[in-house]
Amino acid sequence: MKARIFVTLKGGVLDPQGKAIHHALEGLGFGGVNDVRAGKLIELDLADGTSDEDIDAMCRKLLANTVIENYRIEKVA
């Protein structure tokens, strides 16, 4: 079983990396980009039967810092 964890900065938390990417896109001539936010994708290869609670605990205890980040779990068959 695999799970994908998407970690993103909360709204209002400054994202200099996203800003730099935004500027680079503009530099390449791409107009119409209003904003860029960069995050992380963490793929977990898990033993079958790993509980949702355990995956959530992994996110809360390590994978995301919930002071500044949100996370979303996507289970892949």
Binding site: V13, L14, D15, P16, Q17, K19, A20, N65, V67
Partner: peptide, 15 residues
């Protein structure tokens, strides 16, 4: 990060 102090340290605003 360990919770002994509140808040977090983000990337410097200027990058």
């Amino acid at each position: 990060e360990s919770g002994l102090l509140p808040g977090a340290l983000l990337r410097n605003a200027g990058g």
